[in-house]
Design a protein around this nucleic acid. Structure first.
Length: 348
DNA sequence: AAGGCGGGGCA
DNA sequence: TGCCCAGCCTT
């Protein structure tokens, strides 16, 4: 077995010379700031996270401020970072911290991983980056670096395997401080040098010992498991478009927007379909509670021209009312939207 | 183990 | 256009 500890010094020296300056790595960083950054960075590039993170640190400098915010404001302030359920889970985590942890970010992995939206990666990352502990951190960058440098594979396995975690554990330096710096250093190497496409191997501090290089940098096997879900025309695209409408100032979606206006359809049509089992019924039950059938339209809010444009865009994405209704029902089930007074809006 | 979940930038 | 990005959660 080769001595992998030889990788430590060149990678750490490279990191000290070339690391990006990022606010959540500053000496005056807080554990809360690190936690917020880790949630935002899940499947999201640094460049898009940084401005939103700065705004959040102004609005929510500690868990207390976020815990006291409304879910609707939290989702709105998440902006277009994507995966807005992350915002709701972070909100829930902030409330849990205030309620159960003296409004502090816990420093132990087992407590962290019990919080909403915090999985094995994020728990280890917070323990390592915020508290300097020795934990095995395995993210997409580290997986790729180890796949190439140690295993000689151009691309890591599609899903994280137990063997990969064991390998990362074996490579972790023995001391706390060194382990924590190693984690962020390997991640940075993967982000700046050992990138997924067009890696900059000539600038790599471990090129000489990289197994992938020694093997002649073979291309990945053409197999490339399971084809990815397309974007255009998908439910995800429509969900995002609905959320974009709801995030707008005063954004709301009248229930009858889910019907085809040109056909003069009324909400009652949705109800009829819903009772026939053709549609999700959650939003419909809420929407009609306290709104007698036949009088629903008077309670509907007036839409602005912007809203009209947004609604037209939604209809162009989903001409079928049943599909839009199903999407909205999913948003409500996830807590990202509420139905009140005959309209769909962000939660309270 | 697999699939759903956003959005934008880049080759 | 397809791939990628400091993953998590549910089934």
């Amino acid at each position: 077995m080769s001595d992998h500890t030889k990788l430590h010094r060149p990678v750490l020296n490279w990191f000290r010379a070339h690391a990006r300056v990022l606010p959540w790595r500053a000496d005056d960083r807080t554990a809360w700031g690190v936690l917020v950054s880790e949630i935002m960075l899940q499947q999201t590039p640094v460049a898009r996270v940084e401005p939103v993170w700065r705004a959040w640190m102004q609005m929510y400098p500690t868990p207390k401020e976020l815990a006291e915010a409304s879910a609707g404001d939290v989702v709105r302030n998440w902006g277009k970072l994507g995966y807005p359920r992350r915002a709701l889970r972070l909100h829930e985590t902030a409330k849990a911290l205030v309620r159960d942890h003296d409004a502090q970010v816990p420093d132990d992995y087992s407590t962290l991983i019990g919080l909403p939206g915090i999985g094995s990666y994020t728990a280890a990352a917070v323990a390592s980056f915020a508290f300097g502990q020795r934990h095995t951190v395995v993210d997409t960058n580290i997986r790729r670096v180890l796949a190439r440098a140690i295993k000689g594979e151009a691309v890591p396995q599609p899903t994280l395997t137990a063997a990969e975690t064991r390998l990362a554990e074996k490579l972790l330096p023995a001391t706390r401080a060194r382990a924590a710096e190693w984690n962020v250093a390997v991640m940075e190497l993967g982000a700046l040098i050992c990138t997924a496409r067009s890696p900059r191997c000539d600038a790599c501090p471990i090129k000489r010992s990289c197994q992938w290089q020694l093997d002649g940098a073979p291309a990945p096997a053409p197999d490339r498991a399971g084809r990815k879900q397309a974007w255009h025309g998908t439910d995800r695209q429509l969900r995002g478009a609905v959320m974009d409408v709801l995030r707008a100032p005063g954004g709301a979606l009248p229930i009858d927007a889910l019907t085809d206006a040109s056909a003069g359809a009324l909400p009652i049509n949705i109800l009829a379909d819903a009772t026939a089992g053709a549609l999700p019924i959650n939003i419909l039950a809420d929407a009609t509670a306290g709104v007698p059938a036949g009088s629903a339209r008077q309670a509907l809010p007036v839409h602005s021209p912007d809203q009209a444009d947004a609604l037209a865009r939604l209809r162009s994405l989903a001409p079928e009312q049943s599909r839009l209704a199903r999407i909205v029902d999913g948003l409500v089930a996830d807590g990202l939207a509420r139905v009140r007074d005959g309209a769909i809006s962000l939660p309270d």
